[in-house]
Computed example of a mutant assay.
Amino acid sequence: MTQPTHISQINGFTRGALVNDLRPYPEEIRFVLNRVNGTSFWAWSLWRAPEGADLLDSIPFSEEYMQCAGTADALALEVRRIEDDGAPHQYAIGKPGGDCTGEPTEVIHFDDRRHSTTVYPHEVFTADEAAVVFYTYFLTDEVSQPYELRDLHLSWPKPESDAGVS
């Protein structure tokens, strides 16, 4: 087992160090993602721990992370990062060559169907596909080529609607 460098979070609540004591990191990530069932385990997040953090002492949160929600058969992936202007941006992750015209059509349910997100067809991943994206993020803190990012424009406060404005 190596010194843990990353933190994972289940369902937005339970956090802990991602460890490789049972299997190597790529296999551990794939194992975890294949357990996402949409009900008792419906979301998983991953981020790098601060340099020198003692993960036995505390499990710090980060403003930058990768996350997914859904089931092992249909996951929506997102990445949040702080851009050069200092502002956080959250992006949907998609496979190359997707069409983002019109509104998204694929509904991903999670939290025992209490919640959902709607994405484009090329933004739906299986657990095995997502494991490749997550492992690359684990290694580099980036979403690598050939994957595409779509800005979700989650700024707060929400921009005012243009309806009725002349």
Results as ranks from 00 to 15, higher is better:
Glu63Gly: 13
Val133Ile: 03
Arg30Leu: 13
Asn20Phe: 00
Leu18Arg: 00
Glu64Ser: 05
Tyr65Gly: 00
Leu152Arg: 13
Asp112Tyr: 11
Leu152Pro: 08
Val133Gly: 00
Tyr65Ala: 01
Glu51Ile: 07
Met1Ser: 10
Ile10Gly: 07
Phe31Trp: 14
Asn34Asp: 13
Tyr135Asn: 02
Glu160Tyr: 02
Asp128Cys: 10
Gly94Glu: 00
Thr101Lys: 15
Ile29Val: 10
Ala53Ser: 15
Asp141Asn: 12
Pro4Asp: 01
Ala163Tyr: 15
Leu33Met: 15
His122Phe: 10
Ala131His: 01
Asn37Gly: 11
Glu28Val: 14
Asn20His: 04
Asp111Trp: 10
Asp112Trp: 11
Ala87Gly: 04
Tyr137Cys: 03
Lys95Leu: 11
Phe31Ser: 15
Ser8Pro: 04
Arg114Gln: 13
His122Cys: 08
His122Pro: 06
Glu106Ser: 13
Arg48Tyr: 05
Leu75Tyr: 03
Ala53Cys: 14
Glu160Gln: 07
Ala92Met: 09
Asp84Asn: 09
Leu33Thr: 04
Ser144Cys: 13
Gln3Asn: 14
Ser155Pro: 00
Cys100Ala: 09
Leu154Met: 13
Pro24Ile: 06
Glu27Phe: 00
Gly102Gln: 12
Gly94Asp: 01
Pro146Ile: 02
Gln9Glu: 12
Gly16Arg: 07
Arg48Gly: 00
Trp42Val: 01
Glu63Ala: 14
Trp42Phe: 11
Ala131Met: 01
Leu152Gln: 12
